[in-house]
């Protein structure tokens, strides 16, 4: 049976994720893991039946310290990624996240057809259309960035009351916007669940794509390379919005 497919495609190596994007990504993963873990603890701390005097313990203090440290890393990392969206390569560009063309929507539909509705393709057509993220992923990341924003707003909104530094003070208006700290804290807590849900789906999909496409999707966030069949590349001329070319 295998003889039918004896033709082995030549793979073209494409540098997709530049080092800053990779660093950003993993720093982000790390910060989020810390934020979720400490966030859960802050929301519902363990019952420490410590015989220590309060003066000799600082458990909650440390957990919160970690949360705030990770929060700063998360925040600046996020800012950096926005910046890189304007100066990075075309795969990192902001246009990857915001639908600006008809093609974007066409691609979203195609991804939905193939990866969610499991529809069949025209014979001989490979399934991937994109080299960076596909359009649906890009749009999802856009919403995820909005989620980042919500979390930074509510987080720093809460933090503003604990700090005199001008940076958190920039967020001092947020509680009033949400109708008080109580609601804002609830929003912050609920949003954490969206992070968790996204991560589960995202990580699954990364594995999924690697599995059904076999193009080194997972490792791309390590080395930055993705691979694509030369033949397909010539035939389909995959397109990605390129802001650097007028």
């Amino acid at each position: 049976m295998a003889t039918k497919y004896l033709h082995i495609p030549r793979l073209r190596r494409i540098y997709v994720w530049e080092l800053p994007v990779r660093l950003y990504h993993w720093l982000n993963v790390l910060a989020i893991i810390v934020l979720v873990a400490t966030g859960f603890y802050i929301a519902n701390p363990l019952a420490l039946m410590s015989q220590k005097e309060a003066a000799n313990a600082f458990t909650m203090g440390w957990v919160r310290f970690l949360h705030f440290t990770a929060a700063y890393i998360f925040f600046f990392n996020f800012l950096f990624r926005i910046y890189w969206g304007f100066v990075g390569n075309k795969y990192a560009n902001w246009k990857q996240f915001i639908p600006t063309s008809k093609r974007f929507f066409k691609e979203i539909w195609s991804v939905i057809r193939m990866d969610i509705l499991f529809q069949k393709n025209r014979p001989g057509q490979r399934e991937h259309l994109s080299i960076g993220h596909n359009a649906l992923a890009g749009l999802t990341y856009f919403f995820v960035f909005l989620l980042f924003l919500v979390q930074c707003l509510t987080g720093f909104g809460l933090y503003a009351a604990m700090s005199d530094w001008w940076l958190p003070q920039l967020f001092a208006w947020v509680p009033a916007f949400f109708g008080g700290d109580i609601v804002m804290r609830q929003v912050h807590h609920w949003a954490m669940w969206l992070f968790i849900l996204f991560t589960v789906i995202h990580v699954y999909l990364v594995f999924y794509h690697d599995y059904v496409e076999g193009r080194g999707e997972i490792s791309s966030m390590g080395g930055g390379w993705k691979f694509i069949e030369e033949e397909f590349f010539e035939k389909e001329k995959p397109h990605t919005p390129n802001p650097h070319k007028p």
């Binding site: 701390p45 019952a47 410590s50 220590k52 309060a54 604990m162």
Partner: peptide, 16 residues
């Protein structure tokens, strides 16, 4: 911010 029980909060010691 001005609660005198704050040291217990920071220490992680809570009424269950």
């Amino acid at each position: 911010d001005s609660c005198y029980r704050r040291p217990f909060y920071d220490a992680g010691l809570f009424v269950e």
